[in-house]
Simulated scan of single mutants.
Amino acid sequence: MAAKSANVYARIEPDVKEQAEAILAVLGIPSSNAINMFYKQIILNKGIPFDVKIPSSRPVDVTELSKSDLNTELEKGYADMEAGRTKSAKQVFSDIRRDYNI
């Protein structure tokens, strides 16, 4: 294993740093190790190890919906269910296990 002697200096938003470091602390991973893991994934993937794109649609934040809008969203979900455009929880968990090798 090579000695860790190179430095990376980056300016990031304070709240992003705080939130990420809180999660890393729970996981027991120092920030420098997380950055090293990220760089290794860049090498292994020969690029950014995740999609960098603008999502086509964002999840609906139900806390900001009026009662009428919430009902509209629930009706859309029910229509999807009736039309067979949904997956069972069993299938969703099976897909997750397959996609993440767990």
Rank of each mutant, 00 (worst) to 15 (best):
M1R: 10
M1F: 09
K4V: 07
S5G: 08
V8T: 10
Y9E: 05
Y9K: 09
Y9C: 04
Y9I: 13
A10F: 05
I12K: 00
E13K: 06
E13T: 06
P14V: 06
K17D: 15
K17A: 08
K17E: 15
K17Q: 09
K17W: 13
E18L: 10
Q19L: 12
Q19T: 14
A22V: 09
A22S: 08
I23G: 01
L24Y: 05
L24H: 02
L24I: 13
A25F: 10
A25D: 13
A25Q: 12
P30K: 00
P30L: 00
P30Q: 00
S31P: 02
S31G: 04
S31H: 10
S31T: 12
S32G: 03
N33K: 07
N33R: 13
A34G: 05
I35M: 01
M37S: 10
F38T: 08
K40P: 01
K40Y: 07
Q41L: 10
Q41E: 12
Q41S: 06
I42N: 02
I42F: 09
L44Q: 11
L44T: 14
N45A: 12
G47T: 12
I48G: 04
P49H: 03
F50Y: 14
V52Y: 09
K53H: 14
I54W: 11
S56H: 07
S56N: 09
R58T: 12
R58Y: 15
R58H: 13
P59T: 08
P59A: 09
V60R: 01
V62I: 06
V62N: 02
V62P: 00
T63K: 08
E64F: 12
S66K: 02
S66P: 04
K67C: 03
K67G: 06
K67T: 11
S68R: 05
L70W: 01
T72R: 15
L74I: 15
E75F: 13
G77E: 09
A79Q: 14
A79S: 14
D80M: 15
D80Q: 15
D80C: 11
M81I: 06
M81T: 05
E82M: 15
E82W: 13
E82T: 11
G84Q: 05
R85K: 15
S88L: 07
S88V: 04
K90E: 13
K90W: 05
F93H: 06
S94P: 02
D95R: 02
D95G: 12
I96K: 00
D99P: 07
Y100D: 05
Y100V: 11
N101P: 03
